[in-house]
């Protein structure tokens, strides 16, 4: 029998790669929330992580691999040695990356400015005129702090959650 304490230290995988379909959502979420718990992320940022992860993954599930089933990988981005925050990085923060090998797409910076402006206008549209699409990416861009890179044939989205990740709000 190992010492009892060892049994209570969760061994969390540093990455998870699964088929890019909706059935994979709960497993990705469970791992991300476990990382967030270990990182000591405050509740408000855990909620934001939850939301941004779902919106990002749903976008990959539905658009990254037209006509085929690809894969998507969630990985923990290490925040310095020994799990301690890097210099300048506040405690209680978490960085993750999402990688897919599908159609090149930067969810943080829409190329189609007109589309984005249309979406902004759509926010003010009445019930009848309101179009339902595009809301997920809008929430993602509004609530996430991150960066995108096309690395070879991969889309790599890095997202950071924590005290510095609060978007500048007009409220």
């Amino acid at each position: 029998m190992p010492p009892a304490t060892e049994a209570f230290v969760p061994q969390l995988a540093p990455r998870l790669r699964l088929p890019a379909h909706e059935e994979s959502l709960p497993a990705f979420r469970e791992l991300a929330l476990a990382w967030a718990g270990r990182a000591g992320l405050a509740d408000e940022f855990v909620q934001r992580l939850d939301l941004v992860l779902e919106e990002t993954l749903m976008n990959v599930f539905h658009h990254a691999y037209p006509g085929e089933l690809g894969e998507v990988e969630l990985a923990l981005v290490p925040s310095g040695q020994g799990g301690q925050p890097r210099d300048g990085e506040p405690p209680g923060s978490l960085s993750v990356s999402l990688t897919d090998w599908g159609v090149a797409f930067d969810p943080l910076a829409p190329e189609d400015q007109a589309l984005e402006e249309g979406l902004e206008a759509n926010l003010e549209a009445g019930l009848e005129a309101r179009a339902p699409g595009g809301m997920g990416l809008f929430l993602l861009r509004t609530l996430a702090r991150g960066s995108y890179a096309r690395v070879g044939a991969a889309n790599v989205l890095t997202l950071t959650f924590g005290p510095e990740s609060a978007p500048v709000s007009g409220a």
Binding site: D43, Q47, D50, L51, E54, P132, M135, L139
Partner: peptide, 30 residues
């Protein structure tokens, strides 16, 4: 999430078309 918003929007449109409405209360947090 946005999926929830889509469901709400769809329900609200349907109720309105029938001469009704959909209101909300008790929102907090995310």
């Amino acid at each position: 999430s946005s999926a929830g918003l889509r469901s709400i929007l769809s329900a609200a449109k349907r109720l309105k078309a029938a001469g009704g409405d959909l209101a909300f209360c008790g929102l907090s947090g995310i």
